[in-house]
Design a protein around this nucleic acid. Structure first.
Lengths: 220, 220
DNA sequence: TCACGATCCGGACCGAGGTCCGTTTAAAGT
DNA sequence: ACTTTAAACGGACCTCGGTCCGGATCGTGA
């Protein structure tokens, strides 16, 4: 196995507890060598251009390498694999969302009651995914790793926390997965593009789902 | 585009309405030529053997072809792509489940109240996926097509129907997607294998989820 | 029985992701 | 400035899914 690189240091510890502090891939960059940093920037720019010109499907690792005047190996060294490269392209907006969740103004950030924060969370994520939908889809890792990727873990952890507050008796981690499942890019794509549902309907669905799930009075 | 073959005649019409009658891929097989049928059987047998010996990852299209003493092209002609082959391996149990849902004894089949049928549905699917989990995972199509594949559409349609009866006021198709999301093989794998949750917890989670979602009294 | 056409077969071929390893180079130490 | 070394580079190479098309085969109608 090649030691690859840091961007997404495979989690390893399979806990379902929130990892609130590691901001996705934002913290411990080992400070690249000058040429490496330059090439990284070049590659991201080239990739973005390719997306704009030929869509996400046109982002071939070789094409990116060529467009950045760089060897193919360099792309893999820097980003690990295709998914890593695509995720890096989305990293900025992901960081922004994480910031808003942790320290932004209510109701997204701290300060509002948990159920309201959940409502806001859903519509925020929904909207972020709907822009960049194609990229978001293409950046999806293989099914097995989907739930282990830092961004996903962060969001799920956040929801878990809010759920614990909102509905103390429930199995929060499990319910969190349910809510996150509604926000799966592939599902959003299916509902909007293939079933033709308007975004408003999805948002209403989220609202309804959250209120149903957070009802505290148990069955009967 | 190669016309490929019937096994999964790409849906084309993006409706969210249930397609209750087409039993997955079971009905309209065009009756293969003798040699084709023989090769199909050989291929399935070979694939099953490879799964047993080397796991799903060992099921290479070339390996299957070789093990069945058949050309590679033949595999693709018959099954369309890797996913198609793997799905064919799971077809039997899928058909069985569909039969039980449509005509089996309650509470899985008709006759029980919808909420009870939903409960039974979840545990049945959960169990079916947990056996064959590796295969189920490997057979997963690329994200974009996941929701369009006949078996998935059938199950989702079934749930939609039950939800319409159980909770008339709600957006049944959307809620159905939520419930089906809980039964995503990748999620099941993550929770059981990586988080170490026992199956009982997942089943309890399903029960809880269904009761929460089907509560009719609206918020306040 | 024979001929003919639709169907099927096989494996060469292609593209893309991912790996390997000999070479180059930034940058820290002397 | 010179040495040293860990890091980065580049592109040949491998694997595997998927396509193509000339040739073999089945089954049908005469």
């Amino acid at each position: 196995m090649s030691a690859s690189l840091p961007p997404f240091p495979r989690p390893q510890e399979p806990t379902d507890e929130p990892v609130l502090l590691e901001l996705g891939s934002g913290a411990d960059e080992p400070c690249l060598r000058a040429d490496a940093a330059r090439n990284r920037a070049r590659l991201l720019e080239a990739a973005a251009r390719l997306v704009a010109e030929h869509g996400a499907a046109g982002v071939t690792m070789e094409a990116v390498a060529a467009a950045a005047s760089v060897g193919k190996g360099t792309v893999f060294r820097r980003f690990g694999d295709r998914t890593g490269l695509l995720m890096a392209l989305l990293d900025h907006s992901a960081q922004q969302l994480q910031g808003a969740l942790l320290g932004g103004p209510p109701p997204l950030g701290p300060g509002a009651p948990p159920v309201e924060r959940l409502q806001a969370f859903g519509t925020a994520v929904l909207r972020q995914y709907v822009d960049h939908l194609e990229l978001q889809l293409a950046a999806q890792p293989e099914p097995t790793r989907r739930f282990s990727f830092p961004p996903q873990r962060f969001l799920t952890g956040h929801v878990t926390l809010l759920l614990r507050q909102a509905v103390p008796g429930a199995d929060a981690p499990l319910l969190a997965q349910v809510l996150m499942g509604y926000l799966d890019p592939a599902l959003i794509h299916h509902l909007t593009e293939e079933c033709g549902m308007p975004l408003e309907r999805l948002e209403a669905g989220w609202t309804d789902l959250v209120t149903r799930v957070t009802r505290t009075e148990l069955p009967r």
